[in-house]
Design a protein around this nucleic acid. Structure first.
Lengths: 240, 240
DNA sequence: CAGTGGTCTAGACCACAGA
DNA sequence: CTGTGGTCTAGACCACTGT
């Protein structure tokens, strides 16, 4: 493990998830943890902060640190709202299979709206990519993606059939670090209904996303239209 | 200002929003900031971390700290995804008016599902509250709320017409600190269509939420059904 | 190499909770 | 009062960037 605080975070997280620290129980105090992990108090704090952000524990000045209940849900595909990679995550994590069908893949020139999202000049070249994503052979997402061709060179059909993110991170060695999203419900269009097998009254869960590299440059603007009955987005928020 | 790091956070945030540090510009390095604010480097780091979480800046080891672009959107009611209080926030923030119509307000006994969400025993008393929320006289949210009556005593019609959160925080002096949410798109029911003036093909943006007090106790379980055309949820996520 | 942010320390003092 | 987490310091050493 590279960092001490991440190591400690993983260890404590594991202890919580395996039930060694049960729900509602009190964690050892910070001083005890510094001895247990042979580190300073600041390092323990940093590790525990990660668990607070994750909604796994809460801390109370004067009282201590306690394990929160962490409920699992199973009926749908749960996308952690703060996740950046979307379906790619699921495919590597579980025994489900995510595949793609490419509807369109072309090189175009950015119009004003897209140029603004990607923070590039108008008429710069961009990839325009339309895919249907299948989850265990079931069509579940219509995805429209725009990427700056200068920033992400060498996209091929082959790559689109797998994961764009894998290519960017492992082949181009770029780091995807953040994303801003807008989530909304939307009436399904005829196009949606055809590709995702929906009736006209069945809606779409739309996610509009701009994803950023570690230098702050937007590299992808995408609009994903999810089957309403297969996706939920979960999030945990707390006051800072 | 209570804390030095919050003071510094506010100052730098202000400088970014007023354009004193323009988009894409580099912030002063940490050492310079420690001199400017007369504090240690850890304190600067803590302040800057808040700005990173907010998506206002990004930091790059070896290079520096830079201002990210922060775009505003205006066409819809934008709910910051990490917000806990929902509409109450908007009503106090803007010159728009949020009102309520109470459809039902009764004391009941928790069934298994609700008891589990609120982490109370089955058959404990709970408030069952149904409200329509109006935004500038337009009905826009159907809200179903369950709260433990033991935890949040003294709810009245009067309070429901205003903000429950205000009552809990200012009258009962309880602190609402976190919430876990599930967001989904849903077909509108006849009930939705009637109260929110929707046609059958118009969907609902549903938010299911459990909100927690600072002692980790869930105090509210709610399901809010939003007009799909008036609400968007925005979020910013980054890898930790 | 110098400049910058990332991690980590050892300890000080404060604020809050509960006996 | 003791036990707890929150804030803050002054400084060390490391990792990465670009000259």
């Amino acid at each position: 493990m590279a960092n001490k605080y991440q190591h400690i975070y993983n260890k404590i997280r594991e202890s919580i998830l395996t039930g060694e620290y049960p729900v509602n129980s009190k964690l050892p105090d910070e001083i005890t943890l510094t001895k247990q992990f042979e580190c300073s108090r600041m390092t323990i704090k940093k590790a525990l902060e990660l668990l607070v952000n994750e909604g796994l524990i809460y801390r109370h000045q004067g009282k201590g640190t306690f394990v929160l209940s962490h409920v699992e849900r199973k009926s749908k595909i749960i996308v952690p709202e703060r996740d950046i990679k979307g379906l790619s995550l699921i495919s590597s994590d579980t025994n489900h299979k995510v595949t793609s069908e490419i509807l369109n893949f072309s090189l175009e020139f950015a119009n004003e709206s897209i140029a603004q999202k990607l923070q590039i000049p108008i008429d710069n070249p961009i990839y325009n990519i339309s895919r249907i994503r299948f989850f265990d052979q079931v069509p579940c997402v219509l995805e429209q993606t725009y990427m700056s061709a200068a920033l992400i060179p060498g996209i091929t059909h082959e790559i689109l059939n797998k994961s764009i993110y894998d290519y960017i991170e492992n082949q181009l060695n770029l780091k995807i670090v953040s994303a801003s999203k807008v989530l909304r419900a939307s009436i399904s269009t005829e196009n949606d209904q055809e590709h995702l097998n929906l009736t006209p009254i069945e809606p779409i869960f739309e996610v509009e996303q701009v994803a950023y590299l570690d230098n702050g440059q937007p590299f992808e603007y995408s609009i994903s239209r999810h089957r309403y009955d297969l996706f939920e987005f979960s999030s945990f928020s707390f006051r800072q």
